[in-house]
């Protein structure tokens, strides 16, 4: 675990921040090889210290992702915490992702979702014409939980009116081979 110095504000969970960029050729098939751990943190102060050194998602090059997951959960479908889970996804036009991502991250770190241990992590994916933000939870079959996550997700992202969001169980994503 990350050591939190005295005087700093502990978070409920510790987190790992990962970065990935789609490689070319053979490497693109090995998602885990492209996954790089950027940092770990357990306090509010540690989070801001990492954040202040990072490029904001809106300024990342295409096909890059940030993955912010609780310590011990790898940002992959195959992880035990994720394999029965799913994610709420929103597709955003360019220019919105930095603000939305920051809002989502602060809600997650601050435990605003109020769904026990259900939240696994969040991902922002920078693509050619749009950016995609998602929040991952453990149990795709628990509708009460996923509805609660949806309501908080919508509220904290402060999305433009009429923005569609969708839920995808990871199991279905694997079956229909849809990517992030």
């Amino acid at each position: 675990p990350v050591d939190v110095p005295e005087g700093e504000h502990k978070l409920q969970s510790q987190y790992c921040l990962w970065y990935s960029r789609r490689g070319s050729g053979k490497q693109s098939l090995n998602f885990h090889l492209n996954l790089k751990l950027i940092g770990r943190f357990g306090s509010v102060e540690q989070y801001w210290r990492i954040y202040s050194h990072l490029v904001r998602p809106g300024e990342l090059s295409s096909h890059s992702d940030f993955h912010l997951f609780k310590s011990g959960i790898k940002p992959m479908w195959e992880d035990d915490a994720n394999k029965c889970g799913g994610k709420w996804i929103v597709r955003l036009r360019k220019g919105l992702s930095s603000r939305c991502w920051e809002n989502l991250v602060l809600a997650m770190l601050g435990e605003q979702f109020m769904v026990g241990e259900e939240i696994c992590g969040a991902v922002v994916s920078v693509r050619f014409q749009e950016d995609i933000i998602s929040i991952w939870n453990r149990t795709a079959s628990d509708t009460a939980v996923t509805n609660r996550i949806r309501d908080t997700f919508r509220r904290v992202l402060n999305l433009p009116q009429g923005t569609a969001i969708e839920y995808k169980a990871h199991n279905d994503s694997i079956k229909d081979k849809s990517s992030f």
């Binding site: 005087g7 700093e8 504000h9 502990k10 978070l11 409920q12 509010v44 102060e45 801001w48 210290r49 202040s52 809002n103 602060l106 809600a107 770190l109 601050g110 435990e111 605003q112 904290v156």
Partner: peptide
């Protein structure tokens, strides 16, 4: 036990704390 909960405004303020630099 009790969860450690933080509001957005508090977290944003903490950004300017000397410990967060």
């Amino acid at each position: 036990g009790t969860k450690i909960v933080y509001e957005r405004a508090f977290l944003m303020n903490m950004r300017n704390s000397p410990l967060a630099k």
